[in-house]
Design a protein around this nucleic acid. Structure first.
Lengths: 226, 226
DNA sequence: GGCACGCTTCGCTGCGCGACGAATCGTGCC
DNA sequence: GGCACGATTCGTCGCGCAGCGAAGCGTGCC
């Protein structure tokens, strides 16, 4: 009658618990693969695939195929606004702005990505190792090579240890951080660096969460990188 | 895991077309009875009753029982915000703010309420007739009485005609305007006034809509009331 | 008191859709 | 080339729930 937008369509998409969980997981702007969203939503792959297809069809989410992976992200800021507006009227719990929440900030700062380090600190670390010549410049999804390992940082993080390991897995691989749109270090070195940083007390794992807590030691260490 | 508000609950409530239509109808802050919401949503009374019970249970809508009627309104401004946020991401159609839209403004200014006049102009008219002594002060839901009908306004609007009619329906009744929280004129006089104003060209009916268009004549006439 | 009327409750029907196992497709990797 | 793996498609199952007719309840009205 008086030209309403079809409110019910996006609301229905958000009204299913598994889909709602996916949208919340994407609220901070990251892109996540279907498998991870399935785990977050607590459903199996076929179910997640169907949900994600609906979200894309409904224009709430966009997808980007990278090799055999498929990354999903919120389509636009208005979708995040709507999600947050709904959270505000949800029973119990006050949400100011999730995108600026402590959890989202911690995830953007430092988190684990599979077995390696991600977040802003990962980018600083990668930049510093490239600058030192310990690794070749990173390109997303592509393998890199080690360089001269006699530098200060390479020594402190024991980069040479990964050179010795025998594995089919590439030593260095660029892994795109979808929040920052720049690659950080994955591959054997990426996993090794995360282990070393945890062992050295720079970061500590948060149980049941992918975020990492940066300690005082780590804060000083990362700050000294550049 | 990280203390989310239960986004899915309010979203599910909004994700059903009939309920969504009801919420949109309440978006401008009015209170509407169940029967009218049923008509707006295009469902029968039992279905509407079930939907409204869910909306109340979910905290999106509050109800107020007045006699055998039950009026519903949005529970708080945040609900309207969420509805509008969802409309903005709905396929095709851009909604800026429905509460400030032309249609909502017209409804707040002048509309028909069943068979009589409502909206801000109805309040001005009621105030003027009370001031002139043509009717006793209005109390919501209660009948009133006619007074001296030799005043200017009473003459122009032919109020005396309703005094002559023989009907069980009360001559004057206060009808609460839920937007303005003050009563306007219902009853036989209310219906008579609307008919007269249409006949005199103060307002014209909008087909398929409860809003009334105030003409130039009406604009001048209402302005002269006070 | 009796009627009208708005709303609710009950019982039933049918459909939409979420869930998953199994199989398939496509890609990356060594 | 062959394996591993992420994602999708297909088919099936079962639950949840919207919808309504009929009946019941409470209130207003004269």
């Amino acid at each position: 009658m008086h030209g309403d937008a079809d409110l019910a369509t996006p609301a229905r998409l958000m009204g299913e618990p598994a889909r709602a969980a996916m949208l919340v997981a994407l609220l901070d702007g990251r892109s996540l693969p279907a498998s991870e969203l399935a785990a977050i939503a607590g459903v199996k792959a076929p179910t997640a695939s169907a949900h994600l297809a609906q979200l894309v069809e409904g224009g709430l989410v966009v997808d980007r195929r990278i090799g055999r992976h498929r990354y999903f992200a919120l389509a636009r800021a208005e979708v995040a606004d709507a999600v947050e507006a709904l959270q505000r009227i949800a029973p119990r719990q006050i949400v100011t702005s999730y995108r600026q929440s402590a959890t989202a900030q911690r995830l953007a700062e430092a988190r684990s990505c599979y077995d390696h380090l991600a977040g802003r600190v990962a980018l600083r670390l990668a930049d510093a190792l490239v600058a030192e010549g310990a690794i070749t410049p990173l390109r997303p999804g592509e393998p890199g090579r080690l360089g001269r390992l006699d530098g200060d940082l390479a020594g402190r993080l024991r980069v040479s240890e990964v050179a010795e390991a025998d594995s089919r897995r590439p030593v260095v691989r660029g892994c795109l951080d979808w929040t920052e749109r720049r690659p950080h270090i994955a591959g054997r070195l990426g996993a090794h660096l995360l282990d070393t940083l945890v062992a050295e007390g720079w970061v500590s794992r948060v149980p049941g969460d992918r975020s990492l807590r940066v300690t005082e030691i780590g804060r000083a260490g990362f700050a000294a990188l550049g």
